[in-house]
């Protein structure tokens, strides 16, 4: 009787303890956390792969024709596009389409001049306040380092761009001016869906489906965040090859130099004691 009561109390207290402390607690609801992006098999992420520069060129076209009306790309000058996505002449022509301030002239006035290769891509707004005012209070972030700046990188941006559902799931209440996007933490995002099929016309004839555009622009943004990636991978490979060769060589040299020492034999022959040796001691 006492035994079964004790067992009941023990099991009961364990159950109560588990009920109180055992279940995992989440500070945020899944909606606040946002849907985690799917891993896509990006080609350029592989160790031995470079950016697909055809895709970069398409991606820049998408940025220029679509994203650049709200998002700046302030860390990229026209010169860095040369040899990556465009030729010198093409980059110059694009730079000249914009106006930049000159140095003050003799009267101290600042005039306008056409852009040069060394100029940075123009910002769509004069400053952050103007950007907020034009976008219902939401600031479109600068995209230069966006792939590095967001958890999930390329996958996140691709999912965000292509993840707008036709209509939000039932029961969702969004604040005014927000759109439903499952990948955005909190699910309410100020940016509306922008990529629709055939929004841009690619020079190389690639069908411009919205996911194709998103893929290209994300790869381009990855380039803008890590323009050194191609070079870095090449250098890394060189370093690995050369250091492994040198390591092997140094091991061989060490063994070679030490071989007489490692293979020597120290023999000690004690003097014969007792005086009955062949010498007649």
């Amino acid at each position: 009787m006492a035994g079964s009561a004790a067992t009941t109390v023990a099991i009961g207290s364990m159950a109560w303890y588990y009920h109180l402390y055992g279940t995992e607690l989440h500070a945020m609801t899944p909606a606040e956390e946002g849907l985690h992006p799917t891993k896509y098999p990006w080609e350029h992420v592989a160790w031995t792969k470079t950016f697909d520069h055809q895709a970069l060129r398409r991606g820049f076209q998408v940025y220029r024709e679509v994203c650049s009306s709200c998002h700046s790309l302030s860390r990229i000058p026209y010169r860095s596009l040369v040899g990556v996505t465009h030729t010198v002449d093409e980059a110059k022509a694009m730079a000249e389409e914009n106006e930049y301030d000159t140095e003050p002239n003799d009267e101290g006035e600042i005039e306008k001049r056409p852009g040069k290769l060394s100029d940075y891509l123009p910002n769509p707004y004069k400053n952050d306040e103007a950007a907020r005012a034009a976008n219902n209070g939401a600031l479109p972030p600068d995209l230069s380092l966006m792939v590095k700046a967001r958890h999930g990188g390329c996958d996140y941006i691709f999912s965000l761009l292509t993840g707008y559902p036709e209509e939000p799931p039932p029961g969702v209440k969004l604040a005014d001016g927000l759109n439903f996007n499952p990948y955005f933490p909190g699910t309410g995002i100020a940016m509306a869906r922008v990529l629709y099929n055939d929004l841009v016309e690619y020079e190389d004839g690639t069908p411009a489906s919205s996911s194709q555009m998103a893929k290209d622009v994300v790869e381009f943004l990855n380039w803008s965040a890590e323009p050194e990636m191609d070079q870095r991978k090449k250098m890394g490979m060189k370093v690995l090859v050369i250091t492994s060769l040198l390591t092997a060589l140094s091991i061989w040299v060490k063994r070679y130099k030490w071989s007489p020492i490692k293979t020597r034999k120290i023999a000690y022959s004690p003097p014969k004691m007792g005086g009955t040796g062949p010498n007649g001691h």
Partner: peptide, 11 residues
């Protein structure tokens, strides 16, 4: 709301 169910399906 159906956000969680939507997440699972979308995932």
């Amino acid at each position: 709301d159906c956000v969680e169910e939507f997440f699972h399906l979308a995932h």
